[in-house]
Design a binder for these strands. Sequence first.
RNA 1: GCCCGGAUGGUGGAAUUGGUAGACACGUUGGACUUAAAAUCCAAUGACCAUUGCGGUCGUGCGGGUUCAAGUCCCGCUCCGGGUACCA
Length: 1036
Amino acid sequence: MEYNYNEIEKKWRFYWAENKTFKVEIDYNKPKFYVLDMFPYPSGAGLHVGHPLGYIASDIFSRYKRNKGFNVLHPMGYDAYGLPAEQYAIQTGTHPAITTEINIARYREQLDQIGFSFDWDREVRTSDPKYYKWTQWTFIQLFNSWFDIEIEKAASISELISYFEKSGNQNLKAANSYEKEFTAKEWNGFSRKDQQDVLMAYRLAYLADIDVNWCPALGTVLANDEIKDGLSERGGHPVEKRMMKQWSLRISAYAQRLLDGLNHLEWTDSIKEAQRNWIGRSEGASVNFKIKGHEEVLEVFTTRPDTLFGATFMVIAPEHEFMDKITTLEQKEEVEAYVTIAKNRSERERMTEVKNITGKFTGAYGINPLTGTEIPIWTADYVLSGYGTGAIMAVPGHDSRDFAFARHFNLPIIQVVAQVGEEIKPVEEWETSNDAKEGIMVNSDFLNGLDVKEAITTTIKRLEEIKIGYGTINYRLRDAIFSRQRYWGEPFPVYFKDGIAEVLDEKELPLTLPQVDKYLPTENGEPPLARAENWKTKDGYPLETSTMPGFAGSSAYYYRYMDPHNQDEYFSKESNAYWENVDLYMGGDEHATGHLMYARFWSMFLYDLGLTVKEEPFKKLINQGKIQGRSNFVYRVNHEKYAEYFVWEFIKKQGKEDEFEREYRDGHRKFDFYNKKENLIIEIKSQAKLEKLESYYIDYIKDTNKKLLLIPIVDILEFDESLAMEIEKALKDKNEGVVFFNREVRELKPLFVSKNIKDRELFSTPIHVDIDFVHNDILDIEAFKNWREEYADAEFILEEDKYVCSWEVEKMSKSKYNVQNPDALIEKYGADTFRLYEMFLGPIESHKPWDTNGIEGVFRFMKKFWKLYHPVDAFELSEDEPSKEEHKILHQTIKKVQDDIERFSFNTTVSQFMICTNQLTDLKCNKKAILEPLAILISSFAPHIAEELWEKMGHGESIIKTSFPVFMEDYIKENNFDYPVSFNGKMRFKIELPVTLDKAAVEVAVLASPDAQKWLQGNPPKKVIVVLNRIVNVVI
RNA sequence: GCCCGGAUGGUGGAAUUGGUAGACACGUUGGACUUAAAAUCCAAUGACCAUUGCGGUCGUGCGGGUUCAAGUCCCGCUCCGGGUACCA
């Protein structure tokens, strides 16, 4: 009986859907397990083989966990908002919802084909009003919350208001962007507008002026990576910096919690490291510098307060608010010019010109608070307005950028830290600054002799005593801009009343996305939603016209899956108490600092609201590697080069390479070959070119009295005796000033040369060929000819009757003709083989090229596996008691499969299935006692075939409902162990000994063996190491 | 520059705690079956030397080290991939 995968797989797909086999509900009798995939954006291209990699892995784990007795939540949905659909809408007028719907249908079809165990009843889509109602709802909660630093938690705005009413903001510890202080009395005297403005600076979702990349031509704000060389990536329009009112989320308030939380997560170190760097915590001090002749003090942040005695100048960002105030009249013109330039420099320019040191002296002086010294204040764009206070104290002796700046502008440098045992050199001789955060303080008054660490704490203490500074912590993490000037996203539940932003009542949610006539900004640059008719509240107040960004919908979808149809709540308390959070999250590491950061923030906020039982959303994270493309290349011959090569080879063959000169130059003229002795030039060109240049050649020959042989390329490629004779004749001809022609008009056909043909690289260039025409790097010539009209009559230079292509690993992309989509493979081999093969490719985390060559082997295995159950062409299992050996094979496999799945080593699991199948085949084993548990083992990898066999074995329920076989140590216990015996660490022979022997007995037995005698040659060993049931090493 | 990851046969990869390097596959070669092909099965397959057999030497990017024993640990590099960017 044949392994008819198509029929089997169709049957079980239908069965699973029909019986809702994977539907899951809260079940207090079972432990829960939540397996989640990063949900996909449904693009128009559909899935390629890279997408399912993670899905297959998580599906295997889900199925395995179910067999292990867990109640597994394994949902899937769609990140359905996104730019491509909007872009398509702009071009075609098709509503993005329609495009998205079509794409989702295609995704679903493809996903279903692979046999995933998703509970589709829990599907969510971010663009579904029933879903984004809760995205909007969360926004309202963020808007109505502030962050209390005292308790490190979000709290309600109404509490904040009563606090202000009682105590003002002077002693309040809150994450905010409000700079002034006020008393309760002042607060109570503020107008409503003023009060709201203050509150806005405390909200977790707040409106603020943000410097953005505005592209006037596109009428939109662009992300940094949408800008290439100062122009928009799409369309190449100019981009300018512009202040715009944008919604932001105060994620920075959670910096410390986001940092601390990492310690308890089972994520890869690299992702955790990336998040730590992104958060960028630095400990240091805030120090106030008086400015000579001004009342204002300049606050700086430094991680090295210990080096205060080495601060010889200050630098403030060109955007700094004091800029205008402190710049002196004499410097004004120069400084203003500099600031204008600095502000307009794009990020990219700044990046490429890092080594370009620029800056201007403002004319003002700061006063070093410890020494009283006056130090100049400069402005330079290496100081960023967005980090710290936008101002620094420069310590050129111990900071490389300050050092470079000081050298460039000839500013003083003072050494204040010395390395232990270092010979003190005058700073003038230094080539670099000494940035090391260790050493002993020098030239630093009361700090002298302290080490750096002590000096830092001592300095901070002193600063705090004299009230000019304090120890503090700075984070690099910036608040997240939450507005997008786009159509296809969640509308903000916000309206404006008398210029004050207010949120809608929760009862009015969802605020659905309105229809618009075009998906473009309005003529005066407003976002597309401004085109909607009646985009107002029912009281007539205008609604916010921006929409939310992609991460809005994807930051808490994992909670919605717990209770996806709840109309009254985001998700019920009960469902969250049961499912808690995601136990295993599978997805790409490209989301390290985006999605994974926002989702954690969002999750922490919901936790603060008391909605969830866990602060962190994803306990364990596995990053599946990207599947890269494996491109194939054919070598297209450059006819002219090839012909020249050919002639040169001919000349060499005649032994005349000394007589000829290649690439002969006469003045500005260049010819292919020149024979000095015979005064003969040989020029090879296409027929057309030769004809065009004919008169030019004739004139040249007349002037120089040389002989010229013009050969069209075609003649050479169809090289025969006559051409050889022609060259001979030309060489012998004594007439000067002649031109030899050889004319017979024929057409050049495209010519391709196989990879290993000698000197191929001299006359051909590689071009991508569709991988569909290439099997094991051998080109299917007929298919290639049919690919394109221009190749229809192509010719090929073969090696051993084959055309061999070269290959390279590249990104999978249409333009490289290396895209593999799963449908064709599933059609050809079935979903089970496909699943197995994707896993067999290599470790789940590593990036690897897709190569279909190996899939045949997996397919062969599947057929072999099927044959175990169908030994004589029909399903037949024997009830006989298995042999000891058969038991051993089974239990070795149980152990290996279990261990490997637990450590996500799926490629080695597949190997074990192969080993097991090979061994059982060799034993001609078709015993039910072995093959029944084996079907369960493989069911998480190849569910269709497993279900089919399971049913044939007489089971009435899906194999997913059964239990994973129990591993029994006794079955794999051996009486003997085959000891590898090494001499000086090199394995020489093996000896089988009872496992019960102790070390001494093993040593005796080994040394007594004839093999050992041979190596010892009568000498006693220096030492013998015995590791029981592992290895013996003899040192001689 | 900094941070992270990686480098093992012709190819993908295995070796989980320092203990038999190359499991399992692909590919290749030879053979069986067949009128033939496909499919299937069997054998060989790291390199080099030896070959009548037994064997031997080298070998996990490079150079050192620790150890009875190193792909695995330590030190110093090279190359490749990814992230990040004047973060005070």
